[in-house]
Amino acid sequence: MAAVFGCWTSASRKAVKPVFEKNKALLFYPVQYEGLEQSPYIFYTGATTNQQIVPGLDYLKSQGVKSVYLVGSDYVFPRTANKIIKAYAAANGMTVSGEDYAPLGSTEFGTIVNKVKSSGADAVFNTLNGDSNVAFFKEYKSAGLTAAAMPVVSVSIAEEEVKGIGTQYLEGQLTAWNYYQTTPGAANSKFVAAYKAKYGADKPTSDPMEAAYVGVYLWKAMVEKAGAFDVEKVRAASDGITFDAPEGLVTVDGKTQHIAKTARIGKIGADGLITEVWNSGKPVEPDPYLKTYPWASGLS
């Protein structure tokens, strides 16, 4: 087996990781995740924390946000993300007004929204997963909370999820990703056109899709550079591989086996698409253990 492209949840990646390491096979993992991992047999083509969560916080700070409320599902990614957020907040003069977790799959958000509302926070950082997002945003709007008064930054809501929640509830809310369907550039126009031709005009592209797509091309470039399918040779050839991806230029970091990606903050529009309101200007070097951030020294 030359390479596998896949896995969605962190739990599934953790479950297969020992198998890949034992059999010395390659996995390309396409989803943003909680960082704190570096396996010689996994390439991470989604964002690690410093390419998604940290830029999200930078953006909130630049908008004058002084206090955030943390809402997440009760599992590894949100809890880890929120530890990072708390460390960032402490170092950057922000306060964390509250922190709540809902059991995975929970669809009852009365209490959390009630607490968020009474906290008077400037913004909400949302790391909820899946179905919980639907219930959370419906409750949020019903409680009279708006994107203008208390914006929510989400890290698990891409175009596909927007469709399942309803723009009625999401318009104006923020997301942090590396790619949107609306990202400019010739590479993306081609990607979006080809995707819609194959799967239908009403099917949007999204960040995890793009990261999976990029993974295949990066592997191709690695194999071509190595001149072989052999896993060790492919790994050795990986450092510095670049690809003109739909999200812009990406570069493989051979040491961490993550990729340098541009961080983008977007705003959800009435048409269900997300438009960029800010980007990092250049690709952000991956730093899964946040070693280059002094405020994060106690985290790993």
Binding site: T9, S10, A11, K14, A15, K17, P18, D74, Y75, V76, R79, L104
Partner: peptide
Amino acid sequence: QGTTGGTNGLTDI
């Protein structure tokens, strides 16, 4: 999750 591994469970034995 800090003591049980959360959704990941106990892996890599």
